[in-house]
Nucleic acid binder design. Structure first.
Length: 491
DNA sequence: TTTTGAGTTGTTCGA
DNA sequence: GTCGAACAACTCAAA
């Protein structure tokens, strides 16, 4: 090793992997920097590179706190988290020149703009830039159909995934490192203005979440100790909410999919019955759905803006702003829909079952373009994911890969009865119906007048009339889709 | 190449 | 109240 190399630092560039455990890029950097000038820990806030999708407001809130947590963990190692903002490729150029670094490491990411930036850097620095697999368990290029093509259907994807090599074991947490001691300028986190002010809407989000690797570990332990064995059935109930609630942690890489995959298996010696094992597999399948979404994004980079199935391009979406606004604010008059939209607005997250209900409602009952829903979720969800969010919206809309068939229109009344039978969820998020007995919560307009009066509910005043009639809206949606099929035939 | 079986999460209707 | 079939047709993936 030359004198120069020996005194050169190694940069580890954090992106969607804000963790010290099972972080291959970090592990490699730490090993490579053992005898040199040490590791530089870097995060770049980049909203300007072409094709990079700027984070929504709720994600920015999360990012602020996750970076704060990461910074604390890095300082415990004796290091410093360097914050820079601007176009990533230029920032890297600057820092490489500034520090004469001998190596830069990162874990791969999969958006088009993000990959273009990474490719540019790799092309320039060659072997001095090293990328690793940390965000996904299998690279998209490695999981293909027999014909070498990307999968478009989930079940064969799952079969291939689960019959292939098991995801590698997670790497140990980095608890010591030779950290770069030079003085590098770093921007102030508050200067990025990631947190809301005027008004500060994040109060209830803060109360619900603990961003950062430590918070993710707590959440994972809670889930694997309490709820994973019943996940198969209990995941559908938004009231008790026994889902893992790990999605925002996973989105920011505070925990890796490898860690979750391996955590889903019972400790050796544990003897689980069939339903418990099935529950664990159901949860693993959700992890693989995320993986599937990223593979789709890799192949179809405009997943958030273009119909995966172009047959839907001429679909007659309606664009009424007041209707969209009513949906966004949870004022549709359908309590299960409104509860979901208000949970999202207040807490930055929505239970998965309810996401399907509100998504189906926007697209099919209101005939509003799924892209409007996708954008709203992107802005308001703390787990807004560049792959999963558009993929799930396209799935719900019927435009996507392996999508729900057009005749599958969720009935918001039935769904409320089935999945919120005691009304716990609706009571929590639609307080103006708090006094109404559970049996009337799925369709308050059908409640006896004296029950409404006793509960202090005046429809049209304290709580809205339903914005559309379910049966009429259902027929209208089926007709619209029918017209699409007819149009396709006559072309 | 052709064939075959299958496809996350549902609803409605009629027996 | 319960249960099975219909709801369309098409595309995907593997044999």
């Amino acid at each position: 090793m030359s004198q120069n190399e020996n005194q050169s630092p190694v940069i580890v560039w954090f992106r969607q992997d804000l963790r010290l455990t099972d972080n291959p890029a970090l592990s490699h950097a730490v090993a490579a920097a053992q005898s040199g000038a040490g590791v530089i820990f870097l995060y770049i806030f980049d909203e300007v590179s072409e094709g990079v999708r700027a984070m929504g407001a709720a994600q920015k809130w999360w990012l602020n706190h996750s970076l704060t947590s990461l910074r604390t963990d890095i300082e415990a190692l004796g290091g410093k988290l360097v914050l820079r903002s601007g176009p990533a490729a230029e920032i890297i150029d600057g820092l490489m020149a500034e520090t004469s670094a001998s190596l830069i490491c990162w874990n791969r990411r999969y958006g088009e703009g993000e990959q273009n930036a990474d490719r540019k850097i790799k092309a320039k620095y060659g072997d001095t830039a090293k990328s690793f697999s940390g965000l996904l368990m299998h690279e998209p290029s490695q999981l293909r159909t027999g014909g070498g093509l990307p999968y478009k259907v989930y079940t064969p994807f799952w079969k291939k995934f689960s019959s292939g090599p098991a995801p590698r074991a997670p790497l140990p947490r980095i608890d010591a490192a030779n950290c770069f001691s030079g003085d590098l300028p770093s921007e102030d986190l508050p200067s990025w203005q990631l947190l809301p002010s005027n008004p500060d809407w994040a109060g209830e989000i803060s109360a619900n979440w603990q961003p950062g690797e430590a918070g993710a570990a707590i959440q994972l332990a809670k889930f694997t100790q309490e709820n994973i064995n019943s996940y198969g059935t209990s995941r559908d109930l938004p009231g008790p909410d026994r889902t893992s609630r790990l999605s925002p942690h996973l989105r920011f890489g505070e925990v890796s999919p490898y860690q979750l995959w391996h955590a889903s298996y019972p400790s050796s010696g544990a003897n689980l019955d069939k339903s418990n094992q099935d529950s664990r597999e159901t949860w693993r399948k959700e992890l693989v759905w995320r993986e599937f979404s990223y593979h789709l994004l890799q192949e179809w980079p405009h997943l958030d803006s273009q119909n995966f199935n172009p047959k839907f391009d001429p679909f007659p979406w309606q664009g009424q702003q007041d209707v969209l606004r009513a949906w966004q604010k949870g004022q549709t008059g359908y309590p299960i829909v409104d509860a979901g939209m208000r949970q999202l607005w207040r807490t930055g997250w929505m239970h998965n079952r309810v996401r399907m209900i509100v998504g189906s409602f926007l697209v099919k009952h209101l005939l509003i373009d799924w892209r409007e829903g996708e954008k709203w979720f992107w802005d308001t969800l703390v787990d807004g994911d560049p792959a999963a969010n558009p993929a799930q919206w396209q799935w719900v809309a019927g435009t996507g890969a392996d999508a729900a068939p057009y005749f599958r229109i969720f009935n918001p009344i039935l769904q409320a009865q089935k999945f919120d039978p005691d009304g716990a969820y609706i009571h929590k998020y639609v307080p103006e119906l708090a006094q109404l007995p559970a049996k009337y919560l799925s369709a308050p307009w059908d409640a006896p007048r004296h029950e409404l009066a006793r509960a202090g509910v005046r429809l049209g005043e304290t709580y809205p009339h339903p914005i559309v009639d379910h049966q009429q809206a259902r027929t209208r949606a089926l007709d619209a889709l029918q017209s699409l099929n007819t149009a396709a035939e006559t072309v």
